[in-house]
Structures are given as structure tokens and as C-alpha cells.
Design a protein around this nucleic acid. Structure first.
Lengths: 210, 210
DNA sequence: GTCTATAGACTGATAGAC
DNA sequence: GTCTATCAGTCTATAGAC
């Protein structure tokens, strides 16, 4: 699944239009995107968008579904791995997200905005492939550790919020942050790479002092 | 400055239109908002919007400027207070934001989306009233404490990111979070009120273990 | 100040030539 | 498959009646 695609010489017209649409939708959002923008970005004509995808909305739905999978379902492999410990899972999750978001920095703001704009419509897409919380291996491990009093009895939802917040929010606030602090894109990415090591340490600190 | 206004019986037509515009813009964003939506929400006719505000864009600019002040400049009073300690400032900041965001939950996603959509245009507005970082009292206090080795020498930008992330991000991700966990709006607000006390403790933990 | 009616530009989508 | 030309609908903004 590509977001920032390499130039594929042998990509079909359909694929090229889809990649162009992905770029335009992700940077401007659904409402601000004109089908003419996508046509121009793809190098093809406006009529071809409807030829291949029937409507602006159907094209958007295809792209949004792929983004949701990238954003949510891709982490299922990490949190369901029976071979890794809780701390390793947290570390892998943070590392996975930061690498992915450095490549696709406007993905989270796009996804969260569009979910907010149309929560009912996207609930169905989100439900697809939904795994019951009790069946997630990470949840099982967490419960075992709290039962054995190895972990303190904190609400795991708070910890989850903290992991995702500290990992994802800087990308969401990046334009504002860069405006206020004056740091460059490169300096920002360097900070985020530092955070791959720092966030797990901070999470440990807040768990053990709870 | 009101976002969720009480019904003001003696509000002027101009104020009523502005409040209606605030509600519609904030929930749908600039591009998805039609001037007809604002007219309908205000109870007045479409023509009056242009009579009072000349254009959709000028009306939007007025509202965005007020939101930016609410979002950014309102905290200046806290971080510039010479009477409070660093830890008190952090505590007050978190408390202030959480109270404000419980009242205006879609404010951050709106502001961040629009800045992302038009960073150049909003840079001017953000610069207005900009205070040099060196002159902020919190920054001065922080430097003194690290110089005296009372605080460890961590990059304060990371700490700032963590405070804002853990405080603001849950509101940004709230629709997704509620979809995945099934918690209600009330339960979410209760979690956020808990975080008013928890986040300062966590921040302390991560500072002292650095 | 507030309304109705409408101008003028733009949008998503399609017909039809090649 | 790909294009040009165009339709029908919607948008912002304004003219003009009251």
C-alpha cells in the first residue's frame, strides 16, 4: 500500500489516477478537492475519473478504506503477536507508527478530519475486520500482569491514549508547531526519531509511578 | 468569547450570524460549509451574511482569528505569571485546556485542519501578538532550574509536546476512539477530567526519570 | 435592515467523436 | 481507452423591492 508512491513506469491509468487522488484528497480533504484537481495531478482528463471510478465519492471511499487499514488494521499484527512482551509491543507500536508517519505526515489529520466530518458513514468501514478487544493478545497479557501485581492497576485506556497521543499528535500539530518554534521539517523528523526511544521510557516511568 | 453561546435574547443580528457561522464552520470546516448553511443556522436570510460581512471568506477570517486567540494567546497569561512555579504552570495549563476543550470539543481538529489547509495565510494571524520565546516567564524559570541542576537537562520541546499531546489529542481522536472502544460522550468527559490530575503526575514522572 | 430573485462562476458527471 | 464539449445543478455574491 503506497501513499508516497515511487514513480511506477508500468502503472496502469487506473492506478495513476488513484495515486493522484490519494495525494490530492490527503492534502486538501474531500470537500476542498475538485475532480479537476485530481485529473490535473494525474496527467489525464477529467472524464477518465468517472470512466474508472464512476464518481468522486466512490474514488474517495476506496482511498479512505486503504488509509484506515494503514492507520488501524496494520497494528493488529503487532498487538496480537504471542511471542513479544507487553513492553516490546509498546515499543514496536511506537516505532511502527513513527516510521509510517514520517513517510506520510498528513495521514492522521486527514483520517481524523474525515471521520469527524462523516462518522456514521465511516463507522461501517471501521467495523470491517474489527477484532473483539478481549481477543487481542496485548489485552490478555496486560490483564495477567495486573492480576499478578507486576503492573499497577491503572486504566489501560489512559496508557493507550498516552502512547497514541505522544506518537501521533506531533504530526497533527506539526504545521502549528513549526510556525511557533521555527524548526524545519528535517529538525522535526529528527525530534520524532528521538521519540522512538524516549516515548517507551516515559511510558514505563508513568506506569511504575502509578 | 463564546463558542457554545447561551441564547442571548438581546444579541444583534450581526452577532447571531457570527455565532451561527462559528458553529457551522467549526463542525464542518471552511470548504464543506455553504453560506446557505450559515443563513439557515442563524435564522436569517443568505443575503444578510454578505450585508454584514461582505463575503464567506471575511466572515471565516474573523472567526478563525478569535479561535486562534482562544487556542494560543489565552495561555500567555498562565505561562507569563511570575507568581507561580513551573509545576504549577504545567498544572494550570492542562486544567485550562481540558476545561475549555470539554466545552468546545471540535475546536482543535478545526483549527489544526484549517492551518494545514492554508498555512501561509494563517501564519500572519499567528504572528500577530507573537511573544519572543526568551521573554516567556516559563522558559526563563525552566532554564534557571536546569542550570541549578534541579531539573535534568531534557529538551523542553519534548516535554511541551507531551503536555499538549496528552491533553489535546484525545479530543482530536475522540470520534475514532469512541468508535473503537464504544465509550459514550459522558464517559469520555469523565476520563478527561481524571486526566487533569493524572497528566501532571505523569509529566513529573517522565521529568525525574530523564 | 431584511427580504426575494437572479446573475455569473464553478462543480460533478456524461454524451459522443476518435 | 482517451479526449472535447457541454449539461444540469449548486455555489457565492449582488441588485433591487419593501
Amino acid at each position: 500500500m503506497k501513499i508516497q508512491p515511487e514513480i511506477e513506469l508500468n502503472a496502469t491509468t487506473e492506478e495513476k489516477i488513484k495515486e493522484a487522488a490519494r495525494r490530492v484528497f490527503t492534502s486538501k480533504g474531500y470537500a476542498a478537492t475538485r475532480t479537476r484537481d485530481i485529473a490535473e495531478e494525474s496527467g489525464y482528463n477529467l472524464a477518465l475519473i468517472n470512466y474508472y471510478f464512476r464518481s468522486k465519492e466512490k474514488l474517495f471511499d476506496i482511498i479512505m478504506l486503504e488509509h484506515l487499514q494503514l492507520f488501524i488494521h496494520s497494528v493488529m499484527g503487532i498487538v496480537n503477536d504471542p511471542e513479544t512482551s507487553v513492553h516490546e509491543k509498546i515499543e514496536l507500536l511506537i516505532s511502527h507508527y513513527i516510521d509510517m508517519l514520517i513517510k506520510n505526515p498528513d495521514l492522521p489529520l486527514f483520517v481524523l478530519s474525515e471521520i469527524n466530518a462523516n462518522p456514521v458513514k465511516l463507522a461501517a468501514k471501521l467495523g470491517f475486520g474489527h477484532v473483539e478487544r478481549g481477543n487481542i493478545y496485548l489485552v490478555k497479557q496486560w490483564k495477567e500482569l495486573t492480576a499478578a501485581k507486576i503492573l499497577p492497576n491503572v486504566n489501560p485506556l489512559h496508557i493507550l491514549m498516552n502512547v497514541l497521543s505522544m506518537t501521533i499528535f506531533p504530526f497533527v500539530a506539526s504545521p502549528l508547531l513549526r510556525n511557533r518554534t521555527g524548526i524545519s521539517q528535517e529538525e522535526f523528523n529528527k525530534l520524532m526519531l528521538e521519540r522512538k526511544k524516549l516515548i517507551p521510557v516515559w511510558i514505563n516511568a508513568m506506569i511504575t509511578t502509578s
